[in-house]
Write a protein that binds this DNA or RNA. Structure first.
Length: 435
DNA sequence: TCTGGGGTCCTAGGACCC
DNA sequence: TCTGGGGTCCTAGGACCC
């Protein structure tokens, strides 16, 4: 019988900032999304003060009043720390699925004394990475998520580990969790379920699967079966190849002129193509979209277009060129744009890329050029080396990040220096030496 | 001043073919 | 007078996740 565990970092982004600045411990802290737009992570102290997933500008008074510490998100830092946490977890379970930057499913089948093992996982991650985690253990992934949720919230659960395998507490746990909080049940489905008097995970587990299949779909039916302990969802051991890769971002300021949008789309195309080359893929189509700001009263326009490439490519210049043709096709004067994006589709492994008779360039040269471009940007930061169409000066459309930890600390450290510092901190620990 | 970014899967319906 | 039926592929949209 399979046993799954999900290990989830508590308030991950906040925990990362605390690692960098230990004086934040015990204080209310929040981390903001790109553009400092919304709250994406909250410490328990901030949650206790009633901070939700709010728009930052709507809660500024509250933040001042309670002296809440505010940070812009710093993804290179979080990604570095995430890698360290995952490396530790892998030692506890070679069969592991990295589910997101702050969570992983582990296969604990055959492990005896699951409670102790869970505690050991938690203590080891805390000791060697400085990140607190919660551990849920159960017979299915969905039940493990539910256990994890209770472990994180309930003060009765000791040390953030809850094991529901053969537990007499299982029914009680299912009754305590609302249907809307079950993994796989979102707001919409929860509303419809409520109409049928299905309010809790327990109700969903005991709903008739045939009826669920007829009334909803196979996804929700699987979720219900998993809640009964019937295994439907297996571990995804090797991450599947991406089917699309996107880069999109709200602008620092509303943009109406074509020239700026050319810089934006060139930059987003370059970013998404770099992300694609990191996964060693090539794309067969490029989708470009623009959006106006739906929160303000003025003419709205949400255009988008997908253009095919004559042959799959991972060459930044070609992708930028086609993205700019797409922009030409959708751009309309007279609107104030708030967001744009470039999505690469029809992805295939770059190695399988068929060269076309129409290829006008030397493939080896392009590969070398892209490697040099990516290498320099990896070392010195994204956008260090760029195409002319991306623009050279700091422009108004670029992202706001007014609360980066580097600026909060001493105003000197760049993100990359921070990552380096975290590496150095980590290297002083016993386990990293052992690695 | 001002409301995230990046994905996946499933389904319904239209186009097209024989 | 009358306008099939079945299959496949593609796309858009809706649902979900972090």
């Amino acid at each position: 019988m399979p046993v799954f565990s999900i290990v989830d970092c508590n308030s991950f982004f906040v925990s990362c900032e605390r690692l960098l600045n230990p004086s934040l411990k015990g204080k209310p802290v929040i981390v903001l999304s790109n553009n400092d737009g919304m709250v994406v992570a909250r410490s328990n102290e901030a949650k206790a003060l009633g901070i939700q997933w709010d728009a930052y500008h709507l809660i500024k008074d509250k933040i001042r009043y309670y002296d809440i510490q505010v940070y812009s998100s710093n993804y290179p830092l979080y990604s570095e720390i995430s890698g360290r946490v995952m490396a530790i977890l892998k030692q506890f379970a070679p069969r592991m699925e990295v589910y997101s930057c702050d969570e992983a499913f582990l296969d604990l089948t055959g492990i005896e004394n699951l409670d102790t093992y869970g505690q050991l996982i938690r203590e080891t991650v805390l000791q060697h990475c400085g990140i607190p985690v919660s551990v849920g253990i159960a017979k299915t992934k969905t039940l493990a998520k539910l256990a994890n949720r209770i472990a994180k919230k309930s003060p009765k659960v000791k040390n953030g580990v809850l094991n529901l395998v053969d537990s007499h507490y299982l029914d009680d746990a299912l009754k305590r969790v609302e249907a809307k909080d079950v993994w796989g049940v979102g707001r919409r489905w929860a509303e419809r379920l409520r109409g049928h008097s299905i309010l809790t995970a327990y109700d969903l587990a005991h709903a008739d699967p045939k009826w669920l299949l007829k009334t909803f779909n196979v996804v929700l039916t699987r979720t219900a079966l998993e809640l009964r302990g019937q295994f439907c969802l297996s571990l995804q051991l090797d991450p599947p190849l991406s089917k699309s890769i996107m880069h999109s971002m709200s602008f620092g300021k509303l943009v109406e002129d074509y020239a700026s949008l050319r810089q934006v789309i060139s930059t987003y195309a370059a970013e998404s193509s770099a992300k694609m080359r990191r996964e060693q893929l090539a794309c067969g189509s490029v989708h470009v979209f623009l959006q106006t700001n739906r929160f303000i009263q003025e003419p709205q326009y949400f255009p988008g277009i997908t253009l095919p490439l004559p042959y799959p490519t991972d060459h930044a210049a070609e992708i930028i060129q086609i993205a700019l043709s797409a922009l030409d096709a959708i751009f309309q004067d007279g609107y104030r744009y708030n967001k744009g994006g470039v999505m690469l589709g029809q992805l295939i492994p770059a190695s399988e890329r068929q060269t076309s008779l129409l290829d006008s360039y030397n493939r080896d040269k392009v590969v070398g050029l892209m490697q040099a471009l990516d290498g320099i940007n990896r070392q010195f930061g994204p956008g260090t080396l760029r195409y002319g169409s991306q623009g050279f000066r700091k422009a108004a459309w670029q992202m706001r990040q007014n609360h980066l930890s580097s600026q909060n600390n001493q105003g000197l450290m760049t993100e990359h220096q921070q990552v380096k510092r975290i590496c150095e901190l980590g290297q002083s620990t016993a386990l990293i030496r052992a690695l």
